[in-house]
Amino acid sequence: MPMSTWKVHVQADGREVDARPGETLFDALRRLDTSLIMRGCRNGGCGVCKLRIAAGQVETGPSSEAVLPPAERAQGMVLACKATPRSDVAVELLPRPVNPFLP
């Protein structure tokens, strides 16, 4: 099946971005607005880019159960760096992790 461009819809404010073929949700959302989602390890280990898929299908790669346990995965949580749209998707952003060292 040829890879397609899918729309990524941000639930909080209705903005949309086209995910390029094969592009992760992390890369697509950062292209829309770098403040939407935090840039962490981008390899499925740290969990700071976690969000919820409210609608649509994504393909996911390996991620750490320490930050994305199966119970959360079952609720539609994904790590954006390891989730690639397979349809138009709507995402629910989660609160950013608190950094005690930054103002």
Partner: peptide, 11 residues
């Protein structure tokens, strides 16, 4: 100045 990830990201 710190970047955001450096003191937030652990595994």
């Amino acid at each position: 100045e710190l970047n955001e990830a450096f003191t937030t990201v652990f595994t």
